[in-house]
Write a protein that binds this DNA or RNA. Structure first.
Lengths: 222, 222
DNA sequence: TCCGGTTTGTTCTCCTGTTCACAAACTCCT
DNA sequence: AGGAGTTTGTGAACAGGAGAACAAACCGGA
């Protein structure tokens, strides 16, 4: 009940903060590329689109990496955040479902530059096995187990139609994948130890539509 | 200061609830297609991946559409949620940036089926103006103003590279778009009355990586 | 060495969202 | 008609995150 903190830097970071760290990291990379050596919480907050108090509080969970009266060393902070998130290491990733979206994902340069390496593209449709996408052969879905084992893959991306998604997730879980990024518009059921994040395009649009409807309401509806 | 509620069904719904309504809607559509006429909060909650108390509370913001001892009429509730979100009406949408991702979005059937109609695909690159994607001509970005005016477009989707995104957003705002869905990995600055939602692929992966690192930590690091 | 100016780290308060638990309300069977 | 069983809607406790505000700590100049 006492020693909740593990030996390393493992004070547990709030989920909301974890979700913002990658934004800060990106802002720091930009600043670094512009040649900025030091920045205040105010500047970084502006670049990240949050307020400075929240930024400072978020960073304080990682440790005391700033200097009062001065600000943060851009490269140092950048490294600390990258290490905390885990993007200093290499993350092999498998993408299943190589339709339009899967191809877009395979070609997305933002993965590679952040430590994510696409080790395989899989698709159940034999017609797609001829293709080469982003320099990678599309292979049969059945190869999943072998690939996951050979490359120690922990993260899987699902970009299949909704009907196939649960089966794909089950297979992924069965062969040891513990983190899933799901683009299929369906709710996945997985064991508690597996993390799932979902990205749902039409839901985002529907949320916008709701607010949009609110804006114009009252003006039109007499 | 007193009359905060507008005449219609405009008791303000919490943001967290708004984000879940589309999920419920999708679950209801599935149930309806399976021929289910009635469902309990427990069943619907299971299908939507939330707990039943939260579901009931969410639905209670819309009104009392259930029957105690019985449950919810699937089609009736489906219509009520659709109306509340605004997907019973037609939403013209413009997509800017017809690279891999833009093409995937243009081809995504989930938009059309929920009242979103892609009225134009725009790209700054003249090489793309020859193309036809998802049955729609790709047109020059300069046509934005005219298209937005002619079709009363309120929602814009940005799928350009990061460097172009802010310019695109500015142009969208200037010609009257008030809701933006941003896929470019950058922070957009817009006036307060404009809604922006961002979908960031690499951030999602980084969040997974953080948790993944936590899982394996301690076991490996001696 | 001391002082004014600057910026971080943190505490405290407020607000939003989640979950529990239960009364109210409905159906069905006798 | 009445009672047992079921399910909704909601009040209340609880948890988590956001923002304001300020003390502690640092720099530079005299």
């Amino acid at each position: 009940m006492t020693a909740r903190t593990s030996p390393e830097s493992a004070r547990d970071i709030p989920e909301a903060t974890v979700a913002r760290l990658p934004v800060y990291l990106r802002a720091l990379v930009s600043l670094s590329e512009e040649g900025t050596a030091t920045c205040s919480s105010e500047e970084l907050a502006l670049a990240a689109g949050v307020n400075s108090a929240k930024l400072r509080k978020d960073l304080s969970y990682l440790g005391s990496y700033g200097t009062r009266g001065v600000g943060y060393d851009v490269d140092y902070l950048r490294y600390q955040i990258a290490r905390e998130i885990g993007v200093t290491q290499d993350w092999p990733v498998v993408i299943v479902g190589i339709g339009n979206l899967g191809q877009a994902l395979a070609n997305y340069s933002g993965f590679r530059s952040r430590g994510f390496r696409v080790v395989a593209l899989l698709d159940a449709d034999p017609a797609r096995h001829e293709q080469v996408v982003a320099g990678i052969d599309v292979r049969p879905f059945d190869h999943l187990e072998r690939i996951v084992r050979d490359h120690s893959v922990a993260i899987g991306v699902i970009a299949t139609p909704a009907v196939a998604a649960q089966d794909v997730a089950d297979r992924m879980v069965a062969c040891g994948i513990t983190s899933i990024l799901n683009f299929a518009p369906t709710v996945l059921t997985v064991p508690a130890e597996v993390d799932v994040r979902k990205v749902d395009l039409s839901i985002e649009l529907q949320i916008l539509a709701y607010h949009e409807q609110r804006k114009t309401q009252g003006a039109v509806t007499a």
